[in-house]
């Protein structure tokens, strides 16, 4: 069994959702993660806040952001266990952020610290 990271990419991090929308989205996300955990495939997750975020660049240049300058922002990630990339992709398909048209979930296998990868 390998571990995969499912990274949530949002097209526009500045979009403001209504409290009702946020609540509905929260429930869908919790149900989605709970479904993975109920299969004993959940490893960990973190939501990433946009408030007060910074970008550090070459020569220690610090800017607010990453909004406006790049097309996509990362909203969070979840780490899962899966037998194959296909299974991990099947998990990703259930991710509620995909309701938003421009959003995507990137699926990446986590490198094992076995000296080979």
């Amino acid at each position: 069994m390998d571990e995969f990271m499912l990274i949530f990419r949002h097209e526009d991090g500045n979009k403001v959702a209504s409290p009702e929308q946020l609540q509905a989205w929260m429930k869908q996300t919790m149900d989605w993660i709970g479904g993975i955990a109920a299969q004993n495939k959940f490893v960990g997750s973190n939501g990433l806040l946009f408030d007060g975020s910074k970008v550090v660049r070459h020569n220690s240049v610090v800017t607010n952001g990453p909004f406006g300058e790049i097309k996509e922002t990362i909203g969070g990630y979840i780490t899962v266990k899966a037998e194959s990339i296909e299974e991990a992709v099947a998990f990703a398909k259930g991710c509620p952020i995909l309701v938003g048209e421009g959003n995507s979930v990137e699926v990446r296998k986590i490198a094992k610290r076995d000296g080979v990868h």
Binding site: K27, D31, G34, A37, A38, F42, S45
Partner: peptide, 9 residues
């Protein structure tokens, strides 16, 4: 349901 979602995590 939400409590079980958290518990399982």
């Amino acid at each position: 349901l939400q409590l079980y979602n958290q518990l399982l995590q």
